[in-house]
Amino acid sequence: MNSLLERIIRLRWWILIFLAIIAFTIFAGDFRQDPTTAILAATLRHSTPLVLGALCGMLCERSGVINIGIEGQMLMSAFVGFTVTAATSSLYLGVAAGLACGMLMGAALGGLTVSLQGDQIIAGTVLNIFALGLTSFLYTPGETIHSKTPRINVGPLADIPVIGKIFFANQPITYLSLLLVAVIWYALFKTTWGLRTRAIGEHPSAAETVGVSVAKMRYLNLIIGGGIAGLAGAYLSLEAVGSFERGMTNGKGFVALAVMIFGRWNPVGAWGAALLFGYTNAIQTQFQFRGWLTGHPQFIGMIPFIVTIVVLAGFVGRARPPAAIGQPYTRE
């Protein structure tokens, strides 16, 4: 009982911030249930690509590889997923293609950083620029798909007021992202694979001494992570927008990195952080709806980016990244 109280006291600022956000949401929603629910549901939707991107970054960084190419991985997968759906008119093939494309991009990052031992930051930038160039070159405007991924109601749960609309009436990739948060948390902290992943991110030579192959584990993490970033890309083109646009990721891959750092390289923490960022997006729509600041839409557009900077500046010093991050590993 005492420990519960202590926990509450320790988390007092977060609880206050949470309550303040809820209060503000109800105020912004004009004290009516429908708009308030809509803001919160939009928060979850907007957080999906961010939490997926953050999970990708987390798997890579926990194993000791910085991935700033998430943006490019997402963009390329958004394009491939959209193109496959446009060609086959199957949404699920499109999502699968996006996933596969992300995995390939992850393997490419592995090739540059693990096998060739290139600088990880430069390798990630190469992925970003390459994806932007190639998707712009290959994209033919005017291609369309007939529908977005459908909304699935989870039986009677979807009828619960407020909660049901927020959590149980979503599209498939959003559900998948929630599932992945739980799965990756479990995998990272409760399985041998997770222990090994964390070990090679903290002290690769020690891990290698006890028989863990650093190169193999890093490749594995980069490929799985890339697949998750691929899902984020498929979310953008097939679930959120329903088409592809040049440079449609619009910085989300980088915001995802801030989400990961804010969430302290922990899947559950990252989910909380992604919700905060998703909220800054969701509230924009409501601002426009209520006619607040409509004369200055640019300031509303800046909110997510400024929040990212503030979060980075405020929290990065206190969060500790994996120790071996950023250094190529060579066997001695």
Partner: peptide, 15 residues
């Protein structure tokens, strides 16, 4: 503050 310049510079592009 130790904020990595790769992220802050990109974010400032959008701002």
């Amino acid at each position: 503050r130790g904020a990595h310049e790769v992220i802050t510079t990109i974010m400032l592009n959008f701002v």
